[in-house]
Amino acid sequence: MTDDPGAATSAATAAVADRLTALAAQAAARGVDVILVGPGADLQYLAGHSVPSHERLTLLVVPADGAPAMLVPALERPGWNDSPIEVLGTPISTWLDGEDPYDAAVALFPTGTRVIAVDDHLPAVHALGIRDAVPGSDLTVAGAIIGELRMRKGSEEIAHLARVGAAIDRVQGRIGEWLLAGRTEREVAADIAAALIEEGHTRADFVIVASGPNGASPHHEASDRVIQPGDPVVIDIGGPESTGYFSDCTRTYQVAGTAPDGFAEVYEIVRRAQQAAVQVVRPGITAETVDRTARAIIAEAGYGDRFLTRTGHGIGLEVHEHPYMVEGNDRVLEPGMAFSVEPGIYLEGRFGIRIEDIVVVGEDGPVLMNRADRMLKVVG
């Protein structure tokens, strides 16, 4: 990474050029005439910039054969000044309110376009409007095509993940400041959200504070439940840094006091499962191998039916993206792939335990983006 703005702009422009070339090649290999990308993480990745256009159509047009182009509402055009895709020289067309944006989009397509693939986040109203503007067209989705590129992180992307991972580690290191008996989950969550920004995030994307029996719900939303002495508490937090790359890290704590029966023993099962699943990561294994490794340890301990989720999800410009560590995913892992490893045990009416780190596939094994202590920590 560099602190030189000019070098950073040049690097971003070069990355956009490489990604657009690679996407066009993917389209050609799959028999797709043109790929269309609207605002969101895919556009940020492929254009180096993305702004919401609300109900108005913004579109990146990437043909299998020919040069890419962009279409934006005229009122949004200044927002694209000096963006990597503009610096690259990609033509940026505009349309005015009252004009038909779909006709404007089709004018950018190669002659004879029939197979059109749209990214996963393009609103249906726009996808269907484009389909209707090209009689006889075949509309399909481009998520898997774009995912082939996004799931392999380059060195700059890994540096972003490492920086935001260190930021969230600092927040996990401060949990004892806020996680105290007598406070509500909501109060603790508010303090954590503020700390995420203090420590380098642009926002708190999610803050799960699940105390006592609420921990048995993997996606529990912080409530007004008062945290009790001895409560196990699942803290799952994350958000993006300024580059748009996300953190995601979970630790399970015990509030000072007498823990529920069996809590320490179940915690150790999860810790061992998570450690084993991280250690198995290397090029050449499949995504489902990571899941199976964690699941086998938990099942052997008698809690297989209480491991309710997949073991992990990819991460980058979205907190959940490809590849997914789940049974049935035979995707072979390659260097640069980044994902969470987060096994858990969820005992309804009692407590839940989850430990989560972000891992990048290195040339010889796992590279951890998180360093926060994984041993059971008693706070308060």
Rank of each mutant, 00 (worst) to 15 (best):
M1T: 09
P5S: 09
G6L: 14
T21N: 11
T21K: 15
A22K: 07
L23I: 08
A24E: 06
A25R: 14
D33S: 11
V34R: 05
G40V: 07
A41E: 14
A41W: 05
G48P: 06
V51I: 13
P52C: 10
P52M: 13
V62D: 10
P63Q: 07
A64P: 04
A64W: 08
D65H: 15
V72P: 02
P73F: 04
P78C: 07
P78W: 08
S83I: 08
P84G: 11
P84Q: 11
I85N: 10
E86H: 09
V87E: 11
P91N: 10
T94N: 06
D97K: 09
P101A: 04
Y102G: 00
A107N: 12
G112P: 06
R114V: 13
L122N: 03
P123Q: 05
I130H: 00
I130V: 14
S137E: 03
A142V: 06
I145E: 11
R150L: 09
M151F: 02
L161G: 04
G165Y: 05
G176T: 08
W178T: 01
L180V: 15
G182K: 05
R183E: 07
E187Y: 04
V188H: 05
A190S: 12
D191I: 00
R203Y: 07
V207E: 03
I208N: 05
G215K: 00
A216W: 01
I235P: 00
I235V: 15
G238N: 04
P240Y: 04
E241S: 09
D248W: 05
R251C: 03
T252E: 02
G257P: 11
R271K: 13
A273I: 00
Q274H: 10
A276T: 01
V280M: 06
G284M: 06
I285W: 09
A296C: 02
I298D: 03
G302D: 05
Y303R: 02
D305N: 14
R306C: 00
R310V: 02
H313I: 11
L317V: 09
L317I: 10
V319E: 13
H320D: 12
H322F: 08
D330P: 01
D330W: 03
L333I: 10
Y346V: 01
R350V: 06
G352P: 02
E356D: 08
D357G: 05
V360A: 12
D364W: 01
G365R: 06
P366I: 03
D373E: 15
D373Y: 00
D373C: 04
R374T: 13
